[in-house]
Design a binder for these strands. Sequence first.
DNA 1: TCGATACTTGACGCATCGGTTAATTAACGA
DNA 2: TCGTTAATTAACCGATGCGTCAAGTATCGA
Lengths: 123, 123
Amino acid sequence: MATDQLSKVFSALADPTRRDILARLGEGDATVTELAQPFTISLPAISRHLKVLEGAGLIARDRQAQWRTSSLRAEPLKEATTWMEHLSHLWDERFDRLDAHLASMKQAMQDNQDTDKGDGTND
Amino acid sequence: MATDQLSKVFSALADPTRRDILARLGEGDATVTELAQPFTISLPAISRHLKVLEGAGLIARDRQAQWRTSSLRAEPLKEATTWMEHLSHLWDERFDRLDAHLASMKQAMQDNQDTDKGDGTND
DNA sequence: TCGATACTTGACGCATCGGTTAATTAACGA
DNA sequence: TCGTTAATTAACCGATGCGTCAAGTATCGA
């Protein structure tokens, strides 16, 4: 895995189990066993998923007695969203430019036709 | 890699080379060699990255003579953004609920104090 | 038809991922 | 202090990811 933050975030989101965990955390903090409950995979597997999410900054964790509760952190999510929206925006701009281009082409063709009409002599 | 579309998209975005390629495509369609130009890695490596991006639906490709041009496709990007915004929204809601909870707690404490004051006899 | 150009595919190596079970650590509570 | 509960770490395994170079495919143009 690439080591930069954005790569870590997208990489963390690439796994459906981890996305489910985040969705669950959206409804409130939870312990590891609580998070593991809906899944058929083992507790160590969940523990590792949480470690990945923590590494990406998507969750924060703290210890309360023998329980480790996880909570959602939204900042990296928003950074990633920003990156994607920037790209979408570039894409939209391309269409605007295309529209402008087509419009000017249409105009040029019209001007050309007008010239033909006005002149009459086409070498 | 998980096979669902969202996983493919996030997985594709998890690689910085692929993100750079997408950013480049945001400025206009390009051939494989054009896309490869800024990078030090081999052409086959770029070719495989493009295959991943295509698999995620993030680019479309077509053949013109011996050139294969890639162009950005924004839909999957927007789907992914939607997923992330939904999660961010859940997170924001939690804070609203927390605020409401704290407010009602504060109110309850005030009411309790008022009762104490009004009654005066505590057992 | 044949060489050049553009790109993909095959075959391989190595690192990482996602899962397992077993062992370990951490904190509570009788 | 010792058992119980909660969670992590260790050791392992098969699959996948990302890169390499070499070989193959597709299209153009002389």
